[in-house]
Nucleic acid binder design. Structure first.
Length: 805
RNA sequence: GCCGGAGUGGUGGAAUUGGUAGACGCGCUGGACUCAAAAUCCAGUGUUCCUCUGGAACGUGUGGGUUCAAGUCCCACCUCCGGCACCA
């Protein structure tokens, strides 16, 4: 019989389903291993081949760990609140719940066809009330901790999407989803105080086994900088203008000040003769979108008319209003030090303001502002000190005189947590006319979404829920008072902030999760997903987790111990796969043609997991051929085993081949180097194909090695070898060191670094003998003849290097 | 501009402790089987050159350097990708 995945694969999938092969038992007296994929948004397009790449990788690990005696938790679920279903509802009137459930069914069908060993009993969907009930509950915990607040501030408003967005969702002044322009608009919104955790989010990165560049992205995003806050007295006023600087050492060179156009003191620092100009400038700045501000970096600004006193020099320096200073960072005001700051230098040049160097640039320096290290000059008591020391001395001086203090600032802002959407978690609270708020109790949750007539935004900057009066305006059953519900909903990130905890105890109707189970399963041992979540999801989830940790609700500081990113599968032309480019590969088609095992194997064989890799249709033929060769290694033309499979003792060469293969596949699987593990399996099959007798014991071990990679074929071969049970928990083969080292080794012989000949030696040959033997070689003699041998180096087991002159 | 990552045959990629560069796959060439084709199997396949059953030179983005030995380490660049970007 020929290899026929269409016949084999569905049969084993049914077997796994019926036997509940992959259900994770809590406890079970075994060491645990929690391997998690970033769960998908179930879009209407279904899977593309990029999805199964990551899922195959984690599935290999899950299956491998099971065979190594671990109790494995490998769940899958749905990040099912989100924009596409809502947009679809706007167009067609179909409730997003229906669209979502239909899409989930399709995704699940596709995932099952790939033979992933998910524990489907633990499936969750963030948009189902018995899930989001607990998302709402966690929100109440955040609120109780003072970490959720409502405030009016300039937020990222995206008119095209009809909603506000978090800083993290805006790229180059455009929405990350759809690429629509985003403007700053003052609105009252819910915020989460992630900034309270900035330091810990930064610090705890160090102990995580994550790709260094992901950690860097987060460090960068948190943007910690050390410096000082200093008060500059305003002339003719009691006011002191507070600034933040990372360069207190340059204060003697502060020749003017700049405040942001949004600074609350703009009005009062503006003199009457400058008022018209300042007001005009302010209006102009307010009208600019973020994108406008970023595109043009030409310095603009206007003199406010008033002066402040530089506390270091006692000199009066002018106060300017300019949009190169942001209200959202530091204090929204700076001391401008053109001599040591490029932006200040540029501004000073445009407006002809004085420039004073306070750090001595090197003699060959021909630039403008000098931001490097050097001795302080023109700086009184700091003169001669290098930057680091000068900073410290200056801060001491400021603190001593009560003029300022040491200060750490972060770029990280609080997380904008409300969206003007229908398809998201409603906020679990009631607002009373007096402005007070009552959080809903655990027993009142979930607060479910009401039915609506239309899904469009209300058009008032409010979400669709605002139009459902009977839902919004209620009488509070607890206090009897009239109350309003919040009409915004939570962002999609909310549900994904804690889903890994719900997987631990997904059907618990009494609490979000059982603490005993949490202690057993957490943390996630391996978390795999795309880079696109480097800051957003991963930072938000870490934040919630730390809050839950502080509340004693989880037992680990960090949720994800080890993180890896899979690369993107690109189209055959090397472009990103997308519908509009017409280069999307549909897994359904590939499975129908080549089988799930071939697809899995090919996705892993393409290249290193974390790299972007182009899909190649002829490439998958190669792995399919490999599977067919393997089939022929075990099976005959009819329905049985090949007559070459015999109960004979393996010979020395076969044992070496087997143990080399076990060793390679084991270490490479541990290191997630699946592409090279597969190539080693190919070597095994190629070599075995040439052998007359194929000892059964060898083929048994090899079927087990194959199991995590091509589980359907492995199960089929295993059962053909006479096993009545699944190999899902069969023990992983062990390798024997004695077969990994050869008795006779080939060493190469180099003369002046060039390979000239080879030499067979015994593994434990004496180094001096090896050198002598190398020098005695005829070819080596040709290269050393007439020259002086300077030295001879022997690298045991590798090579002999002869140096001649 | 700043911070990461990457550049290896025709092609996807190996070589993860400085020690035979190109494993494995694709493609291509030749052969076997066949009436023929497909499939399969076998052999070959970095480039150039030579006195061609062999041998030499060159070769991992570029230019230098360290070393007996460099894809791997150091210095200076180039190109591509990702992130951040007037953050004081």
């Amino acid at each position: 019989m020929a290899y026929d995945p269409a016949q084999i694969e569905p049969r084993w999938q049914r077997y796994w389903d019926e036997h509940n092969t992959f259900a994770a038992a809590d406890g079970a007296g075994k060491p645990k291993y929690y391997v998690l994929d970033m769960f998908p948004y179930p879009s209407g397009n279904g899977l593309h081949v990029g999805h199964p790449e990551g899922y195959t990788a984690t599935d290999i690990v899950a299956r491998y760990k099971r065979m190594n005696g671990f109790n494995v938790l490998h769940p899958m679920g749905w990040d099912s609140f989100g924009l596409p279903a809502e947009n679809h509802a706007i167009k067609t009137g179909t409730h997003p719940r229906e669209t979502t459930r239909r899409n989930i069914a399709n995704f699940k069908r596709q995932l099952k066809m790939l033979g992933f060993s998910f524990d489907w009993d633990r499936e969750v969907a963030t948009s189902e009330p018995d899930y989001y009930r607990w998302t709402q509950w966690i929100f109440t915990k955040l609120y109780e901790q003072g970490l959720a607040y409502e405030g009016e501030m300039a937020v990222n408003w995206c008119p095209a999407l009809g909603t506000v967005l978090a800083n993290e969702e805006v790229k180059d002044g455009l929405s990350e989803v759809g690429g629509h322009p985003v403007v700053r608009k003052p609105m009252t919104q819910w915020m989460l105080r992630i900034t309270a955790y900035a330091e810990r989010l930064l610090e705890d990165l160090d102990e995580l086994d994550w790709p260094e560049y992901i950690k860097d992205l987060q460090r960068n995003w948190i943007g910690r900088s050390e410096g000082a806050e200093v008060d500059f007295p305003v002339q003719g006023s009691e006011r002191k203008l507070r600034i933040f600087t990372t360069r207190p050492d340059t204060m003697f060179g502060a020749t003017y000040m700049v405040i942001s156009p949004e600074h609350p003191w703009v009005g009062e620092l503006t003199t009457d003769d400058q008022r018209a100009a300042v007001e005009a400038y302010r209006r102009e700045a307010a009208g600019k979108s973020d994108r406008d501000r970023q595109i043009s970096k030409e310095k603009t600004g206007v003199f406010a008319g008033s002066y402040a006193v530089n506390p270091a020099t006692g000199a009066a320096i002018p106060i300017w209003v300019a949009d190169y200073v942001m209200m959202g960072y530091g204090t929204g005001a700076i001391m401008a030090v053109p001599g040591q700051d490029e932006r200040d230098w540029e501004f000073a040049e445009v407006f002809d303001l004085p420039i004073l160097r306070t750090v001595q640039p090197p003699a060959d320096f021909d630039g403008k502002a000098f931001t490097g290290d050097g001795p302080a000059i023109n700086s009184d008591f700091l003169d001669g000190l290098e930057v680091t020391e000068a900073k410290a001395r200056m801060i001491d001086w400021l603190e001593d005189k009560g003029l300022g203090e040491r200060k750490v600032n972060y770029k990280l802002r609080d997380w904008l947590f409300s969206r003007q959407r229908y398809w998201g978690e409603p906020f679990p609270l009631l607002k009373f006319p007096d402005g007070s708020i009552r959080l809903m109790g655990e027993d009142e949750l979930p607060l479910t979404l009401p039915a609506v007539d239309k899904y469009e935004a209300a058009g008032t900057g409010e979400g669709p829920l605002a139009t459902v009066t009977e839902w919004v305006e209620v009488t509070d059953p607890v206090t009897g008072k009239p109350a309003r519900r919040e009409t915004n909903t939570m962002p999609q990130w909310a549900g994904s902030c804690w889903y890994y905890l719900r997987f631990i105890d997904p059907r618990n109707s009494e609490r979000a999760w059982d603490p005993e189970k949490e202690k057993y399963w957490m943390p996630v041992d391996l978390y795999l997903g795309g880079t696109e979540h480097a800051v957003l999801h991963l930072m938000y989830a870490r934040f919630w987790h730390k809050v839950l940790f502080d509340l004693g609700l989880v037992s680990t500081k960090e949720p994800f111990k080890k993180l890896r990113n899979q690369g993107m599968i690109l189209g055959e032309n090397g472009d990103k796969m997308s519908k509009s480019r017409g280069n999307v590969v549909n897994p359904d088609d590939v499975i129908a043609e080549q089988g799930a095992d071939a697809l899995r194997l090919y996705l892993m064989f393409l290249g290193p997991l974390e790299r972007d890799k182009p899909w190649n249709t002829t490439g998958i033929d190669g792995v399919r051929r490999f599977l067919e060769r393997m089939w022929r290694l075990y099976c005959d033309e009819e329905d049985g085993l090949s007559p070459q499979v015999q109960d004979v003792a393996p010979n020395e060469d076969q044992l070496r081949l087997l143990h080399k293969t076990i060793h390679a596949v084991t270490t490479m699987t541990e290191d997630l180097r699946f592409n090279t593990a597969i190539s080693q399996m190919m070597v095994f099959v190629n070599e075995m194909t040439g052998m007359e007798a194929r000892p059964r014991a060898l083929l048994e071990s090899f079927a087990l090695l194959l199991a995590p990679y091509a589980p359907h074929l492995a199960e089929e071969l295993w059962s053909k070898l006479g096993h009545g049970e699944t190999l899902a928990c069969a023990p992983w083969p062990a390798y024997d060191e004695q077969y990994l080292v050869e008795d006779t080794i080939t060493v190469v012989v180099q003369v002046n670094g060039k390979v000239r000949d080879q030499l067979q030696i015994a593994r434990d040959a004496d180094p001096e003998d090896v050198k002598a033997a190398a020098l005695a070689l005829e070819k080596i003699g040709q290269w050393t003849e007439g020259k002086t041998i300077v030295k001879t180096i022997y690298v045991p087991g590798k090579l002999v290097s002869v140096v001649v002159k």
